[in-house]
Amino acid sequence: MKKDERASFGPRIKEVRLAKKMTLKEFYGPATKYVNNFSPIENGKRIIGERLLADILRIHKISMNWLVNQEGSMFVEEPTVAEEYKGVPFFNVNFSDITFSEFNLLRETPEYYVNLKPLNDCDAFLTVYGDSMYPKYASGEIIAVREVTNMEVIQWGEAYLIITDETANNMITVKSVFEHYNESSLVLRAFNPAYTGDTIIERSAIKRLFIIKGKVMRNQL
């Protein structure tokens, strides 16, 4: 989508926010920590970035047809009960082969969909590569992840897929997350005792966070 095509999107997104009666923080917080940047975007003084736009459309289920053409419903219509449920998308991606700037995982075309009732509330199935979380998650196993929208609520000791910004070297990793004595920081820890040493990162460095809800073997899919 070209830059000039996005020029009018800010005021229209503001219409959505006001229709949902949400503050800037409530509306944009799940997509970015820089919520104050959206005042000039909503006022038409700045153009929203493509990746951020896609995240906001996904989170708030905003209709692209309405946003671009001002036609139809403001929101994407929920599927009816009669429609067939596709399942959760499976992406066979090795995190070590990608960079943060390329990480638009949930907007890529999945290899296929998985319909597994206990995990149907997840956002994606992903392959584990490496042994840092062995034996909890072995290399080649499939994990089911669900995005965390409120990063103030973290289940200490649970495993997460963590995606960071440049201040944490654009790290993308699966680790157990623990509380740090400094509330602005988090401790990332491998499950495998062979991988010693904790990694300390700032909460503000986390761009996206997914809790691991479960795992399956490939032959179960």
Rank of each mutant, 00 (worst) to 15 (best):
K2L: 07
K2N: 15
D4S: 12
E5T: 09
A7L: 08
P11M: 09
P11K: 10
R12W: 05
K14Y: 04
E15I: 08
V16G: 02
R17M: 14
K20L: 15
E26Q: 05
E26N: 03
A31N: 08
T32K: 10
V35Y: 15
N36W: 01
F38Y: 10
S39V: 12
G44H: 01
G44D: 03
K45W: 06
I48F: 00
G49S: 04
R51V: 11
L52E: 07
L52K: 13
L53F: 08
A54Y: 05
D55K: 14
S63Q: 01
M64E: 13
N65Q: 10
L67C: 10
L67E: 06
N69G: 00
Q70M: 11
S73Q: 11
S73M: 08
V76H: 06
P79R: 15
T80R: 14
T80D: 11
T80H: 13
E84L: 09
E84Y: 11
E84S: 11
K86M: 12
G87F: 09
P89V: 03
V93L: 04
N94S: 14
S96M: 12
D97M: 13
D97V: 08
F103D: 05
N104M: 12
L105W: 02
L105P: 00
L106V: 13
V114R: 02
L116A: 13
L116D: 07
K117A: 15
P118E: 14
L119R: 02
N120I: 09
N120Q: 09
D123P: 02
A124H: 03
F125Q: 01
L126W: 02
M133H: 04
A138L: 00
G140Q: 04
A144Y: 01
R146V: 08
V148W: 05
I154T: 09
W156L: 12
E158P: 00
E158Y: 11
I162G: 03
D165S: 05
D165A: 06
T167D: 14
A168F: 10
T173F: 01
K175R: 10
F178M: 01
E179D: 04
H180D: 15
Y181C: 08
L186F: 07
L186N: 05
L188F: 05
A190L: 03
N192W: 09
N192S: 12
I200D: 01
I201T: 06
E202R: 13
I206T: 02
K207E: 15
I211F: 13
I211Q: 07
K213D: 11
K213E: 14
R218E: 14
N219V: 08
N219Q: 10
